[in-house]
């Protein structure tokens, strides 16, 4: 066997200079890459703000905020964002009212009752459910859920708030279930044992000990889900219709903020028209709503982390 002198070979490999150059460059390159995420936020803000300002040079902000009618395509257009917000609100309320009890029930089952094996089967299924494209959910709402609802209540329109609302609910169930389950699982077992040791049933332990202890984590999951529901686009574009109105009627056609953006974008609004700029004003409103929800959710989850 040849005897190589490794010490010397290493000393002779004085390729150190290029190594050191790479060493100096890498953090700079990575910092530049990292700045893209900040630039994206700035890009979103600048884009939305500047075009929204353009919109308000044409349309009075007072009309935008106070009118209750939105008719962008009529010859005498009305620009009351309230009508679109009501549309978003109707969908969101139905979705959340449907998803929160079911999502929480599932979270409780998975965290407190299910065996490891059941959990290993159910969790991937929830992930698949969360991964289904929203355009597919939209198709499902229009071709399956809506006919089903109209079979029960014939007075419901083809486009309505109930069907897309429920399907948006289905879409956010996995989010509520898995994030709430995470929150409940991180409640220390000693707390459960304390309650069970005093003769509480599982159920009483859940409601009197686990849920109160995990409440800020659960709230975070619900607020995040609300944010997702507000920003959801394809389901409502396909199944909710395109007639903005500020009524509380959930059986008739409506339009959400996201639905309006899609309608304008797929209809090729002329660049520079009022309708074109209204895209950004609506986008800005949507952005503010979801940002608010995200900030609240972060506040809750920070609070939850501090507790444990």
């Amino acid at each position: 066997m040849n005897d190589y002198n490794i010490r010397e070979m290493i000393d002779n490999k004085k390729g150190r200079r290029s190594t050191m150059f790479i060493e100096k460059m890498v953090p700079i390159i990575l910092l530049v890459i990292t700045s893209v995420s900040v630039l994206t936020t700035i890009g979103i803000l600048v884009t939305l703000l500047s075009e929204t300002v353009m919109f308000f040079t044409r349309v009075s902000p007072i009309e935008f905020l106070t009118s209750t009618e939105w008719s962008a395509f009529s010859s005498d257009p009305e620009w009351g964002i309230f009508a679109l917000i009501m549309g978003t609100l109707k969908i969101t309320v139905i979705a959340v009212a449907f998803a929160v009890p079911i999502g929480l029930g599932a979270a409780i089952y998975l965290s407190e009752y299910a065996s490891d094996r059941v959990r290993r089967i159910i969790k991937p299924i929830l992930e698949i459910l969360a991964g289904i494209p929203t355009v597919v959910y939209g198709f499902f709402a229009l071709t399956f859920v809506t006919p089903l609802i109209r079979g029960i209540w014939p007075e419901v329109n083809l486009f309505n708030a109930i069907s897309p609302g429920l399907v948006v609910g289905v879409m956010i169930i996995p989010m509520i279930a898995s994030l709430s389950e995470d929150a409940m699982s991180s409640v220390p077992n000693s707390m459960r044992e304390g309650a069970l040791g005093l003769g509480s049933t599982r159920l009483e332990t859940v409601f009197k000990v686990v849920l109160p202890a995990a409440v800020s984590g659960i709230m975070a999951s619900i607020v995040l889900a609300v944010s997702r529901a507000i920003g959801e686009t394809m389901i409502v574009s396909i199944a909710a219709g395109s007639t903005p109105n500020a009524s509380l009627n959930i059986m008739e056609s409506l339009q959400t903020m996201t639905g309006f953006i899609v309608q304008v974008a797929s209809g090729d609004a002329t660049y520079g028209s009022d309708v074109y700029f209204s895209l950004y004003a609506v986008g800005m409103t949507l952005f503010v709503f979801t940002l608010l929800m995200n900030v609240i959710a972060q506040w809750f989850s920070r609070k939850f982390r501090e507790e444990y």
Binding site: M1, N2, D3, Y4, I6, M9, I10, K13, G15
Partner: peptide
């Protein structure tokens, strides 16, 4: 440290 020769590495 830049040594890639398979024989050297084996040893």
């Amino acid at each position: 440290h830049g040594i890639r020769n398979k024989k050297v590495l084996d040893q």
